[in-house]
Simulated scan of single mutants.
Amino acid sequence: MKENDTCSMQRRQLCEWFESPLGRSLQALEAHHLRAVLSGLYGTVVAQLGHIGKLDLMDACSAPTRILLDYNGIANRCTIRSLPEALPLDTKSADVVMLPHTLDFCQDPHQVLREVSRVLRPEGNVVILGFNPLSFWGFRRFIARRPRMAPWCGKFFRLSRIKDWLELLDFDTTHGMMLYYRPPVQNEGVMHRLHFLDKMGDRWWPMMAAVYLVVAKKRVLGVTPLPVSWKTKRIAGRVATQPTVRGIVLPFNPRRVKRLG
């Protein structure tokens, strides 16, 4: 329970940090790209695990049912109090699940992804936002004094690690992007002058962005068709072929064969 309280405190700090100039700048860019992503994902139920900032990250969803689950229970919002490791949702009940920096600030990210896999319907999608440790932001976290404050107290998982976890849970990564190449400075004037780095980053150093956005689809295991082999059988002086499945010869009754003409 102590670890859950620590994660809850860190999530509250993260919400407060997203009200800072740097946090608002980052969330505005994240929300912009999420609108483009979510508009192409169809379904009737969308769930978001964790609340950050004041922007509604699900506003571009066409789904009639939108569920926000958050352990802190933010006031003035339609929120279901829940740990991300134990979602109060039925199995195969959601079409899209959003994780806005949820894995960075949770007790057990493996269990969170297992819960996401459980509640997603076949062909459902998970959308993940995470801080990239291989960036200026990752270096800032490395040199931050302890105890670290948000967002530097997050875990900052590598993108390759997230993809490995998704692959183990039978997810196929469909698309993704890197976001925000500016260094973590709070001065709004400096941030505005460094806006050109976002355009250069995709071309010159694409893996050095502060945040990655990943979309993965829950894989549906198809039914493998049974192999059909053909064997020959001599009938009334002629050679006939008939199918066999799993090595068992299908019965052949010549009395049931009708003569044509």
Score class of each variant (00 low, 15 high):
166 L>A: 09
234 R>K: 15
8 S>R: 13
131 F>A: 15
124 G>T: 01
205 W>G: 00
1 M>K: 14
132 N>K: 12
158 R>C: 14
237 G>K: 12
186 Q>G: 12
94 A>P: 01
103 L>G: 03
35 R>C: 14
205 W>H: 06
138 G>Y: 10
104 D>K: 07
256 R>M: 07
22 L>V: 00
170 D>K: 01
102 T>G: 09
45 V>R: 10
59 D>T: 00
224 T>H: 05
260 L>C: 09
47 A>N: 07
46 V>S: 13
111 Q>H: 10
92 K>A: 15
139 F>M: 01
113 L>S: 09
5 D>G: 10
194 L>C: 07
85 E>V: 08
249 V>D: 13
92 K>Y: 04
148 R>F: 00
20 S>T: 15
125 N>K: 13
198 D>P: 06
70 D>I: 04
175 H>W: 10
206 P>A: 11
91 T>M: 04
251 P>S: 05
129 L>C: 03
140 R>F: 05
28 A>M: 12
247 G>Y: 09
69 L>E: 02
53 G>T: 01
195 H>A: 14
117 S>E: 07
216 A>F: 10
216 A>V: 05
2 K>E: 14
259 R>K: 03
179 L>T: 05
190 V>E: 04
163 K>H: 09
23 G>S: 00
228 V>C: 12
157 F>D: 06
14 L>S: 08
205 W>V: 12
66 R>Q: 05
167 E>F: 11
9 M>P: 04
211 V>W: 08
58 M>S: 09
68 L>S: 08
117 S>T: 01
143 I>Y: 04
64 P>K: 09
7 C>P: 04
30 E>A: 02
85 E>I: 10
137 W>H: 12
37 V>W: 13
214 V>L: 14
30 E>G: 01
179 L>P: 02
23 G>R: 00
30 E>L: 10
162 I>P: 00
178 M>N: 15
4 N>G: 10
71 Y>I: 14
114 R>Y: 06
107 Q>M: 10
169 L>P: 13
205 W>K: 05
84 P>T: 09
170 D>L: 08
232 T>C: 06
242 Q>S: 06
201 G>C: 11
32 H>I: 03
16 E>T: 12
3 E>Y: 07
156 F>P: 00
152 W>C: 01
14 L>M: 15
182 R>P: 02
4 N>S: 11
39 S>P: 02
153 C>Y: 02
42 Y>L: 11
232 T>V: 08
145 R>V: 04
233 K>E: 07
221 L>S: 10
14 L>G: 11
